[in-house]
Design a protein around this nucleic acid. Structure first.
Lengths: 194, 194
DNA sequence: TTTAAAGTTGAATGATCATTCAATATTATG
DNA sequence: CATAATATTGAATGATCATTCAACTTTAAA
């Protein structure tokens, strides 16, 4: 069905789309621009992605897959150590690894599409349910938390993390940024207290 | 400088822009479409808003002004009663008044612009600083909280509220939605405990 | 009432858009 | 090697875009 070439091309196109979206926003990244950026005619892009909507929904899958990756290093660690201090991965949640993993502008640009596209909304919902499940699994490894409702806890932790990401993305002042991060980290540590 | 007519026209145009953006998204709401919607030539819109960017930045001001309004009824109450149970306005924060006040799709669509526009970012930041200040003032009215750092508390409350709004906007199932709301409300009540 | 300013119209601009298509080149298959 | 499938090209489509402009109408000021 899908050849090596077609798989590579699709990947190349989506990555080009993503790169240009970082600079111009998704809404200003046309098929023609992607083509010029990659040195291919727009018709080739449409050969692999028949409509712009399909192209966008592939970009979203690409982004959501990336986001899930924040957990893979932590989960690997857990396999080896059989124990990880929750504080360690809370730190990781607040670290700038996420910003490195995926551009905030592109991410929120995609997110804003959920309100007019049911499929995109479902994809985002699934990602977030997965993120919470993963966090729950990690919390379950910690004996100190075995009295706690870890499902509830992971909801509570994530709502702080996500609120923090939203709010922090407006803060320019470096010092203020660090202050706020500390506040929100403490807020999560408080939740983790036995 | 600005006549009655020009003030009314500008308002009419921005509101038309907002209405169409609810349905199509900002990125798909052109000046021509706004004109058709309001029964006026696009050139008239450009007479009042010389560029599309100016039009967008006016839409954003319009939206942010609206958001601040969630507090005015609460603050009015406080003036009369000289006391309001914080639980009451936490409820209000989580109520659907906000969704009524401003469409989530338009809101997040505007928000995603902060990443490529410094002015818009500043406007959003100012709104959120104001929201937190307002909440602090309300918390300060409550004697039960006079041992607490109300500035810190308002940060912590809002980060939950904003994370919740983000997350809840993906949830379709009504029952699940109510469950989550209750979780996040409890999380805030916990913060308010003396 | 004259005149200036502000408001409004509609047609025209060139740029860019997503998408289509037929033609050509490359690769895989039998 | 032949042939079918896949990959790629480049030109052309009509729609829509933000913006410009000159002409016209209404309102305000003097």
């Amino acid at each position: 069905m899908s050849t090596r070439v077609s798989i590579d091309r699709k990947k190349e196109i989506i990555e080009g789309f993503y790169e240009l979206s970082k600079v111009n926003g998704i809404e200003n990244t046309s098929i023609a621009k992607i083509g010029k950026h990659l040195g291919m005619p727009p018709s080739l892009i449409m050969h692999y992605f028949p409509t712009r909507d399909i192209l966008i929904s592939n970009l979203i899958s690409f982004i959501l897959k990336r986001m899930l990756r924040i957990y893979t290093p932590i989960i690997k660690e857990l396999r080896v150590q059989n124990y990880t201090d929750p504080v360690t991965f809370v730190d990781r949640l607040f670290s700038r690894d996420w910003n490195l993993l995926i551009d905030d502008g592109v991410f929120y640009g995609c997110f804003s599409l959920i309100f007019r596209n049911e499929t995109i909304k479902r994809e985002f919902r699934n990602l977030h349910l997965k993120l919470r499940e993963n966090l729950k699994e990690i919390l379950d490894q910690d004996e100190k938390l075995n009295q706690k409702d870890t499902a509830l806890l992971s909801e509570q932790i994530f709502v702080v993390v996500e609120g923090a990401y939203y709010y922090l993305s407006m803060i320019e002042d470096e010092e203020m940024y660090e202050d706020k991060v500390q506040i929100f980290k403490n807020q999560v540590y408080q939740l983790l207290k036995p």
